[in-house]
Design a protein around this nucleic acid. Structure first.
Lengths: 197, 197
DNA sequence: CCGCTGTGAGACATGAATGTCTCACATGGT
DNA sequence: ACCATGTGAGACATTCATGTCTCACAGCGG
């Protein structure tokens, strides 16, 4: 009846549009609404029916990114086991959303004026807490603040994404690159923690 | 005579304009030409007399960034002593230009289509060579490619800049944050290289 | 003292992306 | 068969940054 349920005709499901937009904007953050629409296989008119404007689209992408990120945080079970393993799980779980996060990471740089989504604060808090736990357990060094480690995690995720996009790195190395640099750094240490295969 | 030399009246010296633009665009990459002009204390007309357009301005900033970057590479004497010390010197020398580099780093993401400045290739090559040297000397781990380490260096520089800009980190920690994470990672290692004071 | 030169201020045109609207069409449900 | 709904295509107005131009003004040099 009046209670609308998604049918086959409504080929445009919001989620698919958002994913397409994310994929495109990850590559070209200045893409036009028209390009976004085409990338999703719909017309600009329809795109505009679902998202009031470019702003609304980006906001929706932000919400999606936050959602995916928190899903990754949940799946990574940050409270269980060694903190370093939790970091590894986190990167593993966040990998599918890394492109979107990279886009939002740079996009946030120019949100300057406006207040930012609460979600980021929650996410930052959870990741910071993980690093803090690692420090308290003696796993992580204490001269690098959890806030910095969190920022660095996002920065490295973005760098890794861009490296792959430029073709200078292989997708299969994403996790290893990111995690190993974040945890172990570039130096070859005499005593080094067990590596995952 | 006709050979023009900068006088007091020509308050607009190109370099000052570029520095101001760099400082502003580092914070807000979408700033208007008008805002850029005001930030340099000149009118939009004058700004436009010195730089044909926004494109030209960004290109000039790119050249400046490359120049500063290569200056830092020279000053860091990458070939001398332990590779890790060379990295420390490099970050030290690059710190003043970090903001500009962060801006250009993200800006380059959307240059997609066009071919990019040769300078970046040269810079990448020099830094990669440093990491390679460190690997060959046994200082650096070999499971992370020099290309990735180079990318990560820029990524961490940018992350550090943004952390300071957001007020969540202290400027004095810039060098330590960046270098220590890049070289040593987050883990607390049983045997750890000598830290600089 | 007068011209030269660079500048600031503002008007103006241009182009591009955006936002809005209409209309025809296809599909699914009644 | 008919109606309702969502869609594509395109026209259209709007907004904004950009690029161009003119003009008046200030300081320096001859």
């Amino acid at each position: 009846m009046s209670h609308m349920v998604y049918s086959r005709l409504m080929a445009v499901d919001r989620d698919h549009v958002l994913r397409s937009a994310a994929a495109l904007l990850t590559r070209r953050s200045t893409a036009t609404m028209d390009e976004v629409a085409k990338s999703a296989g719909i017309s600009r008119a329809t795109l505009h029916r679902h998202f009031a404007g470019r702003d609304a689209l980006v906001r929706a992408l932000e919400s999606l990114g936050i959602e995916e990120c928190e899903k990754a945080l949940d799946a990574a079970r940050l409270d269980e086991g060694p903190a370093s393993d939790a970091v590894r799980r986190l990167v593993r779980e966040a990998e599918p959303a890394a492109g979107l996060l990279a886009f939002l990471y740079t996009e946030n740089q120019l949100f300057e004026g406006e207040e930012q989504h609460d979600g980021w604060a929650r996410i930052d808090a959870r990741i910071s807490a993980l690093f803090r736990r690692g420090q308290q357990s003696g796993e992580f060094r204490i001269d690098l603040t959890p806030v910095w480690l969190t920022e660095a995690l996002f920065g490295l995720l973005a760098s890794a994404v861009w490296l792959l996009q430029s073709g200078k790195g292989a997708p299969k190395d994403f996790h290893h690159m990111t995690v190993e640099l974040l945890l172990g750094g570039a130096l070859r240490h005499s005593v080094r923690p067990i590596e995952e295969s």
